[in-house]
Design a protein around this nucleic acid. Structure first.
Lengths: 115, 115
DNA sequence: TACTATGCATAGCACTTCTATGTATGTCAA
DNA sequence: TTGACATACATAGAAGTGCTATGCATAGTA
């Protein structure tokens, strides 16, 4: 899952699911808004393209982590709102622990001596 | 770049280069030892296989981030010791910043509300 | 003598990813 | 009124990658 440069694609791929799940755990949202939200929160460092996000959302829905419903916005456009399901919260917890574990190893290395 | 389960493969891929560069920035080392060291530091969570590590080391050497030299160990076996080069330190700094940026976004999300 | 640990290496199949492209509508400015 | 841009979702398939399986070699030990 990728973006227009800035952040390494492997890092983008690794962080996509945790980011999406974390966002959705705070309330339902839809594709376009997720892209904006991530862009803002990362100070423009993470600029996902829609062509990359949607397949990830679809996959996560297939996994049963999230579910969607169509909502008509004030402007008249249709939006597909996603919300997190029970399995999604479980997945998020696992991914969060894994992330923190790896982060711990890196942080420890960086702490031991300035690199 | 992957391991035998435990940590998500995408996360493993994203953390491999930063981990290797961070380790080497503390002193030269060789493939087999790097695998052990990462295994220990992650409490067995990150168990890289040799078939996955070597291609990464080769790629990083091609990039000019690290360099190698053959050393005969006390036991008589040949080891290929890698050490970090100037460009490798630069790459490490960039990757560290990127990692911390993404980590910051995740940490912020996790802080805002228990998920 | 056979197995495990040490130690490095790579071909190529299998899988994934993302680019490019498509659809559609609303708004605003020229 | 037409063109540009933002909003909004979707996917085929080329392009690229990763990792499994396999190979080589030696030392120690049960």
């Amino acid at each position: 899952m990728h973006s227009i440069s800035m952040i390494d694609k492997e890092l983008v791929a690794a962080s996509a699911e945790p980011l999406i799940l974390s966002l959705l755990s705070k309330g339902e949202s839809y594709g376009y808004a997720i892209i904006q939200e991530i862009k803002t929160r990362s100070q423009d460092q993470l600029q996902w393209t829609d062509g990359m996000l949607y397949p990830v959302l679809h996959r996560m829905e297939r996994e049963g982590w999230i579910e969607s419903r169509w909502v008509e916005s004030e402007t008249g456009r249709k939006r597909k709102y996603y919300s997190i399901k029970k399995d999604g919260k479980k997945a998020l917890n696992e991914q969060r622990e894994q992330w923190l574990k790896v982060h711990g190893v890196l942080a420890q290395l960086w702490k031991e001596k300035y690199v």
